[in-house]
Design a protein around this nucleic acid. Structure first.
Lengths: 254, 254
DNA sequence: GTCAAAATGCACTCGCCAGTGCAGATTATG
DNA sequence: CATAATCTGCACTGGCGAGTGCATTTTGAC
């Protein structure tokens, strides 16, 4: 019936053809990538066997070889795909850090922004939102599995660093740094090196999670994530918040 | 003959026997442990083969099995030994963080302790010393190899977490927390949760090194270590240094 | 020198798994 | 239905490496 279609529907037919053909391939391909990452994460690169990957993907072993050639290429592809997905989510969270709140902070009533007193602090709440989001991402089991696999195989596959980590982590830090710079200019943060601020903000977030999640083997309850995020923002703001409130405070005292 | 030995010389004889006998064994044992860690670090657990370990240790394969039974036990022993060594060095550095300087800080001329102005700040210099030492330890190739192996095999050998990491990292953080608490009481730091302070101090140190050393695959020049240590201490002190200088400042202003 | 424990060298078994070849089933297309 | 591409199931090779057995040698104690 597809063959009797009029030329007017050629475009549709072609699209359908491509979609149908590719859909099957893409679906299988994606299923294989997902299964591969799962199995690699569970067993490690060396112990993972292609047969199990095929089995988990619901596919014949030959199909895996048809798509990816050999184990090493499959590993590379699976790591890159997962890395892109994870880093995309991280970037989306980081971009929620807007300087919009900072302007309100500079003009609004922010007398309590130094200590942990009452009053609404838009910079703080925005940072806490981003901190919480980043922590949730970074404590996702898939994220931890990716880190573990990277650490495990980085000496044997150094190119993974650039393909999976470098492009992602660099962009995350740069994105944060951009937002920090705008926060500084808007008066929400003191003048500082935005890259350093971003680096340390990330360190205050992810550093404590290593021990608390036991290298990713223990699921961390949300309440604990909140605790860490809050503590990180508190320390970060004490170190980097604009000094204006203090000046106001001393002026009031004098 | 052992049965006919006089009871008076039993202790000495036994000691001599054990010492001499064990010395040979201990030397081989240690050589095997060192070689095992090296090979595991280079190849990963799964790809490391017992024959190469024996070869590197200068020992027959059978000797390895005589001492450690099987590959898994050898891995465990090698990880634990290296972990103890690394953590011992870390603890030694952390214990250089004394509250002695803090008292001097509280009584001496510390007007410039808030900003980065001139004047000698013993708390800062002591923190910088410890920060630099910890960074040096944590960037040691052996330390990175240990981290990589832990990350790589933690899902398959969960007991390693307690044996290698837990006991060590916990003690490091607790030791730092103890010193932080004394610094607080002595007036060098503001009143704060010392465990949280220690956690964040460590995070500010080790967090940035992950990206900078590319997961331990790139040797970090000493100058960069200094940069990171200095930045970490600067941020830490801005967040945690005692407020007394500010009080003194406002008192002088009024 | 004598003895026992430890260490060595060699050859061997056994299980695991990457990758291949082939013959047949499935699927989309015309 | 015909065709071509893809997918599937199965059997197979080849290599690698953990762990063992045994005969021999070295080492340290008495």
């Amino acid at each position: 019936m597809g063959g009797t279609a009029a030329s007017s529907s050629t475009a549709t037919a072609t699209a359908t053809t491509e979609r149908a053909t590719r859909r099957g391939r893409i679906d299988k391909r994606q299923a294989i990538l997902d299964a591969a990452f799962t199995v690699f994460a569970n067993r490690g690169y060396a112990r993972a066997c292609m047969e199990e990957i095929a089995e988990v993907a619901g596919v014949a072993k030959h199909t895996v070889y048809n798509h990816f050639g050999d184990k090493e290429s499959l590993f590379h592809a699976a790591m890159e795909a997962t890395g892109n997905a994870v880093m995309g989510e991280n970037l989306a969270v980081a971009e929620r850090l807007t300087a919009g709140g900072a302007e309100r902070a500079a003009t609004g009533p922010t007398a309590a922004s130094d200590g942990s007193g009452a009053g609404f602090d838009p910079v703080r709440s925005c940072l806490e939102d981003v901190a919480h989001g980043l922590l949730q991402q970074c404590c996702d089991p898939r994220s931890w599995a990716l880190r573990r696999l990277l650490y495990a195989e980085i000496t044997r596959f150094p190119e993974l660093l650039e393909a999976v980590w470098g492009r992602g982590a660099d962009r995350l830090r740069q994105t944060l740094a951009d937002r920090m710079a705008r926060l500084s200019l808007a008066g929400g943060l003191c003048p500082c090196d935005p890259v350093e601020a971003a680096e340390q903000f990330l360190a205050l977030l992810t550093g404590p999670m290593e021990a608390r999640s036991q290298l990713g083997t223990r699921p961390v309850p949300t309440a604990e994530l909140d605790t860490v995020a809050e503590a990180a923002v508190r320390t970060f703001l004490r170190a980097f918040q604009a000094e204006r409130p203090r000046a106001a405070l001393s002026a009031a005292a004098s």
